[in-house]
Amino acid sequence: MSSPLTGTVAIVTGASSGIGEATAVRLAEHGASVAVVARRKDRLDALVAEIEAAGGTALAVEADITDRNQAEQAVAAVIDRFGRLDILINNAGLMLLGTVLDQDVDEWERMIAVNQKALLYMTNAALPHLLTAAEDDLRKVADIINISSIAGRQAWPKFGVYNMTKFAVNGFTEALRQEVTQKHVRVGVLEPGAVATELVSHNNQTVKDELAASDAKNIPERLQPEDIAESIAYMVTRHRRSSIAELWAMPTSQA
């Protein structure tokens, strides 16, 4: 018996760790051929080996998708290898925290590049292929899932620019959904709360210590990447008549 995504091809960005890595594994388990995109080629190669050892099919694509040409080339490489594209998971993200007064403006630029520009470049390059896939007889539907955050719904001090990028992801996702949903390209946003990933690790030690103390007190059991991967898999395996426009996934302990 075939799996729900047998014959489909998926791209997962930010796939060298955390949510992206777990999502690639889960989609492969559902039968998709998965292209994993990130800058850390050694980790991508290890992930491909893991997926293939389990009987799946995967392709490592090393790219800095904040560069428009590299994003376009990444999508082209997937089409060259597999001949189609059915699912795009825009997962790559960066969270650097600080007050508007004191934070290094270069950090703002980095977040805007990863959280917004990379998502736009990948979506623009992938969309024509997704529209084509939605018209053929394999599933008669295609999917874009953008990974946002609870920070796309709620703002806090020191999160200002990160908040801005994630609120923007939510707005862009809804606008795009209205543009293409009747063409059976489903567009959804997934907003996780606290997840045990590398996201915090890019901050300075003071910020990391503050967040660790806050989480220990307020969120004793964070979500795991596999929890989010399962939610993504749920969104893209629905019958074509069903579109999950927004999914908010929170740790039970996070108020």
Rank of each mutant, 00 (worst) to 15 (best):
S2M: 12
V9N: 09
L211G: 07
K158M: 09
A71C: 06
A74G: 08
I145R: 04
L131D: 10
R222W: 02
D86C: 05
V185K: 01
V236Q: 09
V141Y: 03
V200S: 06
V9P: 02
A175C: 05
E29D: 14
D102G: 10
L120P: 03
W156H: 10
Q73A: 15
R110W: 01
H202D: 15
V141N: 06
G152D: 14
I232E: 01
T197L: 03
D45P: 04
A118E: 08
A245I: 12
K208V: 12
T181G: 00
S243C: 11
N146I: 11
A196G: 00
I219K: 07
S242A: 11
S253R: 12
D45H: 11
V36N: 04
K183H: 07
V185Q: 04
V100M: 12
Q178N: 05
G20F: 10
S17A: 13
K140I: 03
A113Y: 04
K41I: 15
L130A: 12
D64G: 09
D143I: 03
T197M: 02
D209M: 14
T197N: 05
V12E: 05
L176W: 00
Q154D: 08
E230L: 10
T165S: 08
R240W: 11
V34S: 09
S149Q: 09
E62K: 15
V195S: 07
P251D: 08
V48L: 08
S201W: 01
G188E: 01
S242F: 12
M164Y: 02
A133C: 05
T173P: 00
I65Y: 03
K208F: 02
N218P: 11
N115C: 06
E191S: 13
N146R: 06
V36E: 09
K41E: 13
R43N: 14
S243F: 09
T57L: 05
A175H: 01
N170E: 10
N69V: 10
E109I: 07
A32R: 11
E226G: 14
I228H: 07
V195R: 05
T181C: 01
R153F: 12
S214V: 15
A194T: 10
E210H: 09
R26I: 03
